[in-house]
Amino acid sequence: MEKSKIYLGMTMFGFYYAPDTPGYAELKAQVEQIFDQIKAGKYEAVV
């Protein structure tokens, strides 16, 4: 079975490294969750 592909836009990386962004903690947690799912093999990352 082929994995679903997920497109990672550069904005995701920007949120991760921009602590002055409003809602930073929530955005960082969401990005980490996506990266964890990629590591677990749920998705194939595409940039």
Rank of each mutant, 00 (worst) to 15 (best):
M1H: 09
M1C: 09
M1A: 12
E2M: 05
E2G: 09
E2I: 10
K3T: 05
K3Y: 03
S4D: 04
S4A: 12
K5Q: 13
K5H: 11
K5R: 08
I6N: 01
I6E: 00
Y7F: 12
Y7R: 06
Y7W: 10
Y7T: 02
Y7G: 03
Y7P: 00
L8G: 03
G9T: 12
G9Q: 06
G9N: 07
G9S: 04
G9P: 00
M10C: 08
M10E: 13
M10W: 03
M10F: 01
T11I: 05
T11Y: 00
T11F: 02
M12A: 03
M12Q: 07
M12R: 10
M12H: 10
F13C: 10
F13A: 04
F13P: 03
F13Y: 06
F13T: 09
G14C: 05
G14R: 01
G14I: 00
F15W: 11
F15Q: 02
F15E: 00
Y16K: 04
Y16M: 07
Y16F: 08
Y16E: 00
A18K: 04
A18S: 15
A18E: 07
P19V: 00
P19M: 06
P19L: 04
P19G: 07
P19F: 03
D20R: 08
D20N: 06
D20I: 01
D20G: 02
T21C: 06
T21F: 13
P22R: 02
P22I: 02
P22T: 02
P22Q: 00
G23S: 03
Y24I: 05
Y24D: 04
A25M: 06
A25C: 02
A25S: 09
E26T: 06
E26N: 09
L27C: 02
L27W: 03
L27Q: 06
K28V: 14
K28Q: 09
K28I: 10
A29C: 09
A29W: 00
Q30L: 10
Q30K: 11
V31S: 10
V31G: 11
E32R: 10
E32Y: 07
E32F: 08
Q33T: 13
I34M: 11
I34W: 01
F35Q: 13
F35T: 04
F35P: 00
D36A: 12
D36G: 12
D36W: 04
D36S: 13
Q37H: 10
Q37C: 06
Q37T: 02
Q37M: 08
Q37N: 09
K39N: 14
K39R: 15
A40S: 11
A40C: 08
G41E: 12
G41Q: 14
G41N: 11
G41P: 09
G41F: 12
K42S: 09
K42Q: 13
Y43I: 14
Y43H: 14
E44W: 15
E44M: 15
E44D: 15
V46D: 14
V47C: 15
V47G: 12
